[in-house]
Simulated assay, not measured.
Amino acid sequence: MSKSIKKRPFIHPEGWKFATIFFIVSALTSMLWLPLAIFGFLLTFFTLWFFRDPERNIPQDQNLVISSADGKVCLIDEAYPPEELSMDTAKMKRICVFMNVFNVHVNRSPVLGQAERIVYKKGKFLNASLDKASDKNERSSLVISTESGTKIIVVQIAGLIARRILSFISQDQLLVQGERFGLIRFGSRVDIYMPLDAETKCKVGDKVTAGESILALLK
Protein backbone atom coordinates (compact mmCIF):
# COMPACT_ATOMS: atom_id res chain seq x y z
CA MET A 1 0.00 0.00 0.00
CA SER A 2 1.30 3.44 -0.85
CA LYS A 3 -0.04 6.93 -0.83
CA SER A 4 1.62 10.35 -0.82
CA ILE A 5 1.01 12.92 1.89
CA LYS A 6 0.06 16.30 0.47
CA LYS A 7 1.91 19.31 1.82
CA ARG A 8 -0.28 21.86 3.58
CA PRO A 9 0.09 25.51 4.58
CA PHE A 10 2.11 26.07 7.76
CA ILE A 11 -1.04 27.38 9.50
CA HIS A 12 -3.95 24.94 9.60
CA PRO A 13 -7.18 26.36 8.03
CA GLU A 14 -8.96 26.05 11.40
CA GLY A 15 -6.63 28.71 12.78
CA TRP A 16 -7.51 31.39 10.24
CA LYS A 17 -11.17 31.41 11.31
CA PHE A 18 -10.35 32.23 14.93
CA ALA A 19 -7.53 34.61 14.04
CA THR A 20 -9.78 36.60 11.69
CA ILE A 21 -12.40 37.04 14.42
CA PHE A 22 -9.79 38.15 16.99
CA PHE A 23 -8.21 40.56 14.51
CA ILE A 24 -11.51 42.24 13.57
CA VAL A 25 -12.56 42.61 17.21
CA SER A 26 -9.11 43.99 18.11
CA ALA A 27 -9.21 46.50 15.26
CA LEU A 28 -12.62 47.76 16.38
CA THR A 29 -11.52 47.86 20.02
CA SER A 30 -8.45 49.96 19.13
CA MET A 31 -10.79 52.93 18.62
CA LEU A 32 -12.11 52.54 22.18
CA TRP A 33 -9.29 51.31 24.39
CA LEU A 34 -5.78 50.68 23.01
CA PRO A 35 -4.46 48.35 25.79
CA LEU A 36 -7.32 45.91 25.18
CA ALA A 37 -6.74 46.11 21.44
CA ILE A 38 -3.05 45.28 21.92
CA PHE A 39 -4.02 42.23 23.96
CA GLY A 40 -6.41 41.22 21.18
CA PHE A 41 -3.69 41.48 18.52
CA LEU A 42 -1.37 39.37 20.67
CA LEU A 43 -4.16 36.81 20.98
CA THR A 44 -4.50 36.85 17.19
CA PHE A 45 -0.82 36.00 16.71
CA PHE A 46 -0.97 33.33 19.44
CA THR A 47 -3.95 31.71 17.69
CA LEU A 48 -2.05 31.51 14.41
CA TRP A 49 0.95 30.05 16.23
CA PHE A 50 -1.23 27.52 18.09
CA PHE A 51 -2.66 26.20 14.81
CA ARG A 52 0.73 25.78 13.16
CA ASP A 53 1.03 22.59 11.13
CA PRO A 54 4.70 21.97 10.27
CA GLU A 55 5.96 19.22 7.99
CA ARG A 56 7.67 16.28 9.71
CA ASN A 57 10.40 13.77 8.82
CA ILE A 58 8.35 10.59 9.06
CA PRO A 59 10.10 7.21 9.51
CA GLN A 60 8.39 4.85 7.04
CA ASP A 61 8.60 1.51 8.84
CA GLN A 62 5.52 -0.66 9.30
CA ASN A 63 6.97 -2.19 12.48
CA LEU A 64 7.20 1.16 14.25
CA VAL A 65 4.50 2.93 16.23
CA ILE A 66 5.24 6.64 16.02
CA SER A 67 3.73 9.36 18.16
CA SER A 68 0.35 10.76 17.12
CA ALA A 69 0.86 13.95 19.11
CA ASP A 70 3.41 16.54 20.15
CA GLY A 71 3.83 16.72 23.90
CA LYS A 72 5.05 14.69 26.87
CA VAL A 73 4.57 10.99 27.59
CA CYS A 74 2.45 11.10 30.76
CA LEU A 75 1.53 7.44 31.20
CA ILE A 76 2.59 3.98 30.02
CA ASP A 77 0.46 1.10 31.24
CA GLU A 78 -1.86 -1.75 30.28
CA ALA A 79 -5.55 -1.00 29.76
CA TYR A 80 -8.67 -2.20 27.99
CA PRO A 81 -9.70 -0.28 24.83
CA PRO A 82 -12.49 2.31 25.24
CA GLU A 83 -15.76 0.56 26.06
CA GLU A 84 -17.67 2.24 23.24
CA LEU A 85 -15.58 0.27 20.72
CA SER A 86 -17.05 -3.01 22.06
CA MET A 87 -13.87 -4.84 21.10
CA ASP A 88 -13.56 -8.42 22.25
CA THR A 89 -9.95 -8.11 23.34
CA ALA A 90 -7.75 -8.39 26.41
CA LYS A 91 -5.74 -5.55 27.83
CA MET A 92 -3.44 -3.68 25.47
CA LYS A 93 -0.32 -1.62 26.01
CA ARG A 94 -1.25 2.07 26.27
CA ILE A 95 1.05 5.04 25.78
CA CYS A 96 -0.45 8.44 26.60
CA VAL A 97 0.84 11.80 25.36
CA PHE A 98 -0.30 15.04 27.00
CA MET A 99 -0.44 18.20 24.87
CA ASN A 100 -0.35 21.63 26.48
CA VAL A 101 -1.43 24.84 24.73
CA PHE A 102 2.11 25.41 23.42
CA ASN A 103 2.32 22.13 21.50
CA VAL A 104 1.31 21.53 17.89
CA HIS A 105 -2.20 20.03 18.08
CA VAL A 106 -2.48 18.34 14.70
CA ASN A 107 -2.58 14.56 15.23
CA ARG A 108 -0.97 11.99 12.94
CA SER A 109 -1.43 8.29 12.26
CA PRO A 110 1.07 6.14 14.22
CA VAL A 111 1.09 3.35 11.61
CA LEU A 112 0.24 2.52 8.02
CA GLY A 113 -3.23 1.01 7.83
CA GLN A 114 -6.95 1.34 7.23
CA ALA A 115 -9.26 3.44 9.39
CA GLU A 116 -11.51 0.55 10.40
CA ARG A 117 -13.71 2.45 12.88
CA ILE A 118 -14.18 5.98 14.20
CA VAL A 119 -16.32 6.32 17.33
CA TYR A 120 -17.08 9.57 19.15
CA LYS A 121 -18.26 9.70 22.77
CA LYS A 122 -19.42 12.70 24.77
CA GLY A 123 -17.96 13.21 28.23
CA LYS A 124 -16.47 15.57 30.78
CA PHE A 125 -13.63 18.07 30.36
CA LEU A 126 -11.28 17.12 33.21
CA ASN A 127 -7.58 17.95 33.14
CA ALA A 128 -6.28 15.68 30.36
CA SER A 129 -3.14 14.81 32.33
CA LEU A 130 -5.22 12.90 34.93
CA ASP A 131 -5.46 9.11 34.60
CA LYS A 132 -9.27 9.17 34.82
CA ALA A 133 -9.46 11.47 31.78
CA SER A 134 -9.19 8.39 29.55
CA ASP A 135 -12.52 7.09 30.90
CA LYS A 136 -14.41 10.27 31.82
CA ASN A 137 -13.55 12.87 29.17
CA GLU A 138 -15.06 13.53 25.77
CA ARG A 139 -13.14 11.52 23.19
CA SER A 140 -12.91 10.17 19.66
CA SER A 141 -11.49 6.67 19.09
CA LEU A 142 -9.88 5.58 15.83
CA VAL A 143 -9.19 1.89 15.16
CA ILE A 144 -6.46 1.32 12.56
CA SER A 145 -5.93 -2.11 11.01
CA THR A 146 -2.44 -2.70 9.61
CA GLU A 147 -1.58 -4.96 6.65
CA SER A 148 -0.70 -7.75 9.09
CA GLY A 149 -4.07 -7.43 10.83
CA THR A 150 -2.70 -5.77 13.97
CA LYS A 151 -5.14 -3.36 15.61
CA ILE A 152 -3.82 0.01 16.76
CA ILE A 153 -6.22 2.35 18.56
CA VAL A 154 -5.72 6.09 18.78
CA VAL A 155 -7.95 8.00 21.19
CA GLN A 156 -8.18 11.80 21.04
CA ILE A 157 -9.22 13.09 24.46
CA ALA A 158 -10.54 16.59 25.07
CA GLY A 159 -8.95 18.42 28.01
CA LEU A 160 -9.78 21.10 30.54
CA ILE A 161 -9.77 23.88 27.93
CA ALA A 162 -10.34 21.88 24.77
CA ARG A 163 -13.94 21.87 23.61
CA ARG A 164 -13.85 20.31 20.18
CA ILE A 165 -12.22 17.28 18.57
CA LEU A 166 -11.90 17.48 14.79
CA SER A 167 -11.47 14.57 12.37
CA PHE A 168 -10.06 14.96 8.85
CA ILE A 169 -10.71 11.40 7.69
CA SER A 170 -13.54 8.96 7.01
CA GLN A 171 -14.09 5.32 7.88
CA ASP A 172 -12.29 2.76 5.66
CA GLN A 173 -9.81 5.40 4.50
CA LEU A 174 -6.21 4.29 3.99
CA LEU A 175 -3.82 6.14 6.28
CA VAL A 176 -0.15 6.56 5.55
CA GLN A 177 2.14 6.44 8.56
CA GLY A 178 2.42 10.00 9.84
CA GLU A 179 -0.62 11.25 7.92
CA ARG A 180 -2.71 13.97 9.59
CA PHE A 181 -6.02 12.56 10.78
CA GLY A 182 -7.35 15.08 13.30
CA LEU A 183 -6.91 17.99 15.66
CA ILE A 184 -7.96 18.90 19.20
CA ARG A 185 -8.38 22.55 20.14
CA PHE A 186 -6.46 24.06 23.05
CA GLY A 187 -4.81 21.50 25.33
CA SER A 188 -5.62 17.79 25.32
CA ARG A 189 -4.27 14.22 25.26
CA VAL A 190 -3.85 11.29 22.88
CA ASP A 191 -3.79 7.64 24.03
CA ILE A 192 -2.35 4.97 21.73
CA TYR A 193 -3.24 1.31 22.33
CA MET A 194 -1.16 -1.51 20.83
CA PRO A 195 -0.46 -5.22 21.43
CA LEU A 196 1.05 -6.09 24.81
CA ASP A 197 4.16 -7.57 23.19
CA ALA A 198 5.06 -4.28 21.49
CA GLU A 199 8.52 -3.19 22.66
CA THR A 200 8.34 0.23 24.33
CA LYS A 201 10.86 2.75 22.97
CA CYS A 202 9.98 5.68 25.22
CA LYS A 203 9.48 6.42 28.91
CA VAL A 204 7.25 8.61 31.05
CA GLY A 205 8.45 12.21 30.89
CA ASP A 206 9.86 12.00 27.36
CA LYS A 207 9.03 14.87 25.04
CA VAL A 208 7.77 13.50 21.72
CA THR A 209 6.98 14.87 18.28
CA ALA A 210 3.99 13.78 16.19
CA GLY A 211 5.00 11.91 13.07
CA GLU A 212 8.64 11.57 14.13
CA SER A 213 9.18 10.16 17.63
CA ILE A 214 9.15 6.38 17.98
CA LEU A 215 6.94 5.11 20.82
CA ALA A 216 7.17 1.35 20.29
CA LEU A 217 8.28 -1.48 18.03
CA LEU A 218 5.71 -4.06 16.94
CA LYS A 219 6.72 -7.72 17.10
Rank of each mutant, 00 (worst) to 15 (best):
residue 28 L to T: 03
residue 111 V to D: 05
residue 147 E to Q: 15
residue 18 F to I: 13
residue 53 D to L: 09
residue 151 K to E: 14
residue 78 E to I: 08
residue 161 I to H: 00
residue 91 K to E: 14
residue 101 V to P: 00
residue 46 F to Q: 00
residue 62 Q to S: 14
residue 33 W to M: 09
residue 134 S to K: 11
residue 24 I to N: 00
residue 148 S to P: 01
residue 174 L to D: 03
residue 194 M to I: 06
residue 72 K to P: 00
residue 139 R to I: 01
residue 182 G to Q: 08
residue 75 L to P: 00
residue 163 R to T: 09
residue 10 F to A: 08
residue 10 F to T: 09
residue 45 F to T: 14
residue 2 S to E: 13
residue 216 A to T: 05
residue 201 K to N: 12
residue 127 N to F: 07
residue 8 R to Y: 12
residue 44 T to A: 08
residue 122 K to F: 01
residue 181 F to S: 04
residue 109 S to H: 04
residue 130 L to T: 09
residue 6 K to E: 12
residue 54 P to L: 05
residue 75 L to H: 04
residue 109 S to Y: 02
residue 166 L to H: 13
residue 33 W to V: 11
residue 10 F to R: 07
residue 190 V to T: 15
residue 179 E to V: 01
residue 197 D to I: 01
residue 142 L to N: 06
residue 45 F to L: 15
residue 108 R to L: 10
residue 201 K to P: 00
residue 124 K to L: 13
residue 194 M to Q: 10
residue 98 F to Y: 15
residue 159 G to K: 08
residue 86 S to I: 05
residue 34 L to S: 02
residue 205 G to C: 09
residue 139 R to V: 01
residue 79 A to C: 01
residue 15 G to N: 11
residue 68 S to T: 05
residue 140 S to V: 13
residue 203 K to I: 13
residue 24 I to G: 00
residue 172 D to I: 00
residue 207 K to L: 07
residue 75 L to W: 04
residue 170 S to R: 14
residue 15 G to V: 10
residue 169 I to Y: 03
residue 162 A to L: 10
residue 64 L to A: 07
residue 50 F to I: 07
residue 20 T to I: 15
residue 212 E to L: 04
residue 87 M to N: 00
residue 35 P to H: 10
residue 92 M to K: 11
residue 172 D to E: 15
residue 75 L to I: 03
residue 161 I to R: 02
residue 13 P to N: 08
residue 24 I to H: 02
residue 213 S to V: 03
residue 160 L to F: 14
residue 48 L to K: 08
residue 4 S to M: 08
residue 202 C to Q: 02
residue 41 F to G: 04
residue 125 F to Q: 09
residue 147 E to R: 11
residue 143 V to D: 07
residue 6 K to Q: 10
residue 204 V to R: 13
residue 182 G to E: 06
residue 19 A to N: 06
residue 170 S to D: 13
residue 28 L to C: 12
residue 182 G to F: 07
residue 104 V to K: 02
residue 99 M to V: 06
residue 64 L to I: 08
residue 17 K to L: 12
residue 7 K to R: 13
residue 139 R to D: 01
residue 169 I to A: 04
residue 218 L to K: 07
